[in-house]
Write a protein that binds this DNA or RNA. Sequence first.
DNA 1: GCCGTTTTCGGCCCGACTGTTTTCAGTCG
Length: 573
Amino acid sequence: MKNQEIAKIFNEMANFLEMEGIAFKPYAYQRAAYSLQVLEEDVGDVYRKGGLEALQDIPGIGKNLAEHIEDYLKTGKIKTHEEYKKKLPVKTDELLKIEGLGPKKIKVLYQKINIKNLIDLERAAKGHKIAPLFGFGDKTEKNILEGLEFIKKNSGRFLLGEIMPIAQKIYGELESLKEVEKINLAGSLRRQKETIGDVDILIVSKNPKKVVDFFVALPGVKKILGAGPTKASIRLKEGFDVDLRIVPEKSYGAALQYFTGSKDHNIATRKIAIEKGLKLSEYGLFKGLKMIAGRTEEEIYKALGMIWMSPEIRENEGEIEASLKDNLPALVELKDIKGDLHCHSDWDGGKNTIEEMAQAAIDLGYEYIGISDHTKFLRIEDGLDEKKLLRQRQQVNEINKKFQASGFKFQVLQGCEANIMNKGSIDINDEVLAQLDYVIAGVHSILKMPQREMMARITKAMRNPNVDIISHPTGRLIGRRDEYKHDFDLMLKTAKETGTILEINASPQRLDLRDLYIKRAKNEGVKMIINTDSHQKEQLNLMEYGVSQARRGWAEKSNIINTLPVEELLKYF
DNA sequence: GCCGTTTTCGGCCCGACTGTTTTCAGTCG
């Protein structure tokens, strides 16, 4: 797929054009780059099938950019991009990571003191070559040095599951302040995005100064990035930023809508406002000078002829159109989940016994829990062999008898998380698999296979009549390991044929399936299950992240199999 | 450079804060 390569060049073109001070064109290039990034089809295939005309059907791609794409597909280069690279041989993507440096400053740094990359920048800043430049100064130089330190230590984005607990702590401290009348998390955190750049908090207060003073003095603040009467930013010792905005009560809904984003969603909603002769900002929806909505998100969307939608789907990925047509999905909710089927016990080296896991599931209000320990091929996880699985079957039966005797409606199911071997066989024999309530199968070894072999392997496992669920189907670890080479269309097709369920693994570093795949699975009618992959009872709480990911993928209750009561679930298996 | 239930030309989301050029461009979200 050349999509990402061309998107990268278009983004670089946008940077070059901004450096040149050219208006509006950079936005066009960025928009086109984004379109390519989210395009599911290979842009090369689009071109082969329909030529330049088909390329122009991609949003944001017109005649010129279609020709650029053609240029790249034929020669591996884009002519104007090569010309700019010669004229401004600067690593813009590197330098733009420095907070406070934008295209204009980068251009000056290149033209005056020949800075082309981060190494040049560090040398110049340490040698006090930057402060004397026109338009720069001591503070800018100091900020550049701090920015260099910051990006050396931090990758830039954090996992939702890492950031949420810290954000909630800050939220709690601010909430306890008597000057704070209303407070909400906003931004990508409210949208439950799998990775978070920074935390956004929105507050209503009649005494903003008090709130800002308290905020910038919170424990754990490493640097105050800015503090004005209505907004402030801090950097925490953990390495991420928290932005605070304070608005008047009457603008709260408008501000919440705005700070929740996404940026693309906001641009789209503001355009709808303009089409209606209105103006939307974080202060409200205005007709001329008159404010016609702003107190709640609901009234703003309503005034725009739209229906309010959950933050998780505000990505300008179809929700605007669905909202205008009153065709929004009824997203699955945490309370719909009736059990968790991917849980490990102390049988395979997990921390808790089956009874302890069951009790934790009962405390969460579940109707069932499924124990799915690793199987024998995974030696490092103390995987169970056939004999042990049968012994575990007996123990589970005994536990269930106790529940029945006490009249308590709860059931422990026995499954396993078996290994899909490199040719697609399962490491436990079919006779034993058939005695379990359900079988999860997953790839845990030889992840770097060519796509064709990997898909032959997985589809063979899916065709095994005993296999019900594929765990973490794409194998990614967010920010650490790419998906293995797979063909998701083939995976969906095979899942549909065989009735195999695809897992949405709720572990914050996996969230696999990811949102875009969930949406495709839903559209193909493939069933999914949200599991935590818990190795200790506390991890059962991670379910909320899996549900969020499912919601981001537009999943409804009917798409998720563990919203079913236990009898129907077992019948499905 | 793209795009169009007002338009094939004239728009392109909107506002806050910083640092420095002391009035506003640049940057950020």
